[in-house]
Design a protein around this nucleic acid. Sequence first.
DNA 1: AGGAAGATTTGCT
DNA 2: GCAAATCTTCCTA
Length: 189
Amino acid sequence: MTKNFILAGIDFHAPSDLVARQLIGTVLLVDGVGGRIVETEAYDREDPASHAFSGPTERNGAMFGDPAHAYVYRSYGIHWCLNFVCRESGHGAGVLIRAIEPLEGLERMRERRALEAELLLCSGPGKLCQALGVSRDHNAMALALPPFALWAAPQPVQVVAGPRIGISKAMDVPWRFGLAGSRFVSRPF
DNA sequence: AGGAAGATTTGCT
DNA sequence: GCAAATCTTCCTA
């Protein structure tokens, strides 16, 4: 029996920009804490802005592993950032989870985020990792297994796209996706 | 061995 | 709007 990389109705073998777009509206929980994904960014192997661009290293190894697994890396020595691995095993592609609309475990999020206002609990890749308790321990873990849970979008959503944030290369590629009209994104589209 | 850069966040001017 | 905080990874010598 072959491994199944379809999760929440999304085929993680697909190119990262497709997966990033389809992830908008899905519900992500980590140990019961999480909410609706409202902002993502796609990164791919042939993408100068991607960690995978220069090939596998110790840091990005998970990106070259199986799809539908997590890739967690340290950002600016301070924050953790969570990605979902895409494409076939060994390709080196992923989707950065940039913002979540908090739905479950608000109390634990507030504890971890120092009682931050609800709108700001998960409005950024580093913030949502802090709120959901994601760290190095989650790197390379399967998204289909606990503590992760990913549910299909409860209802159809309208997705908007734009250039990615915080990068210095390929700044014209519109691989940032968001839930139209959401106030929980890290920055307006 | 050393240094520069980094898919960020926060607070202050 | 700008710069600091903070540290790991990766590249160069």
